[in-house]
Simulated scan of single mutants.
Amino acid sequence: MAFLYTNGDHHAAEALFVFGSLMDLDLMARVIGRDAAHVRMAPASIRGFQRRRVAGEHYPVLVPKPDGLVDGRLVEGLTAADIDRVHFYEGDVYELVPVTATTEDGRRVTALVFLDTGAIDVSHDGWDFDAWVQTERSMALALAERLMTYYGRISLREVEGIWARIKDQVDSLYGYDEEAMAAEARAYP
């Protein structure tokens, strides 16, 4: 299989560290396009970063912070094709970078994480998974469902071009409230 969105060097045994909406197993299943029963997610953390909300969006980005600690999930059991689909979902504003993740039992694992290529407008607001589940999860599932219909049909660069249209369609269905999103973001520094 030719991998469209990654460099093809990723192996099925590699782990992925996720820190935002992909911590939701249902969202992960929509992104990889099948039941995620084979995917193992365990609480883990990485050092040297801080999680912030992407300006005007419902998802976070990591920014460097020397004394930072970000809790997330270590995802194992993904195939190279799964990682390719996740890369499509993340878009070309992120690149896969190896980091060391530490699990709750102290195991240290080299994992890939999606980091900003410098193209993302980062807000000063924090992002909280539990608040996201309560206020934005339904919309995020719908966004992922629509976006992933384009997998294999358009390039990573083209994803950015259709993202606003997909987001507007889903916003109109869910009555997405920018002010409520901003208030929630300010609550989690």
Results as ranks from 00 to 15, higher is better:
71 D>M: 11
27 L>V: 07
130 D>P: 00
157 R>I: 06
42 A>R: 09
169 Q>K: 08
78 L>H: 07
57 E>F: 05
156 L>H: 06
89 Y>T: 04
139 M>A: 13
101 A>G: 04
147 L>S: 10
121 D>V: 07
23 M>F: 08
118 G>M: 07
49 F>E: 04
53 R>H: 08
178 E>T: 01
134 Q>T: 09
120 I>K: 13
17 F>H: 03
22 L>R: 05
86 V>N: 01
131 A>E: 01
47 R>T: 03
117 T>P: 09
147 L>K: 03
62 L>M: 09
67 D>C: 02
96 L>C: 02
76 E>W: 06
164 A>H: 14
27 L>F: 10
165 R>Y: 12
61 V>K: 01
176 Y>K: 10
18 V>N: 00
54 V>C: 13
66 P>S: 14
121 D>A: 15
99 V>Q: 11
131 A>Y: 07
129 F>M: 06
72 G>T: 01
112 L>C: 03
19 F>E: 07
69 L>Q: 09
108 R>N: 11
2 A>K: 13
75 V>W: 02
100 T>Q: 15
16 L>Y: 03
169 Q>V: 04
146 R>W: 04
29 A>S: 14
152 G>R: 02
43 P>L: 04
152 G>H: 05
65 K>F: 13
86 V>M: 14
105 D>R: 12
173 L>W: 03
174 Y>K: 06
30 R>H: 11
7 N>M: 09
102 T>M: 14
141 L>W: 02
189 P>F: 10
133 V>N: 08
151 Y>G: 03
171 D>Q: 10
101 A>M: 07
129 F>T: 04
117 T>C: 11
61 V>L: 06
171 D>I: 08
129 F>H: 04
141 L>V: 07
95 E>M: 13
120 I>Y: 12
84 D>T: 01
122 V>C: 05
27 L>M: 11
64 P>M: 11
7 N>Q: 11
37 A>I: 01
150 Y>F: 15
97 V>D: 12
179 E>A: 15
103 T>F: 10
148 M>S: 02
114 F>Q: 02
111 A>Q: 05
177 D>R: 02
37 A>H: 12
22 L>N: 09
103 T>H: 05
172 S>N: 11
104 E>M: 12
92 D>F: 09
148 M>V: 03
167 K>T: 06
152 G>I: 05
169 Q>W: 06
100 T>S: 15
92 D>C: 09
5 Y>A: 05
102 T>H: 10
118 G>A: 09
131 A>M: 05
47 R>Y: 08
26 D>R: 15
48 G>L: 00
133 V>Q: 15
81 A>C: 10
88 F>S: 01
30 R>P: 07
100 T>K: 14
104 E>N: 14
121 D>N: 14
15 A>S: 09
149 T>N: 13
175 G>K: 00
33 G>W: 00
144 A>D: 08
95 E>P: 02
108 R>S: 13
156 L>E: 02
113 V>W: 00
58 H>E: 12
117 T>Y: 14
144 A>K: 04
125 D>T: 05
12 A>C: 08
29 A>Q: 05
125 D>L: 10
77 G>W: 01
5 Y>K: 07
70 V>G: 05
128 D>F: 02
82 D>A: 01
109 V>P: 04
141 L>E: 08
158 E>Q: 12
134 Q>H: 09
122 V>I: 12
8 G>T: 03
164 A>I: 06
127 W>L: 03
21 S>R: 06
11 H>Y: 04
167 K>C: 05
38 H>G: 13
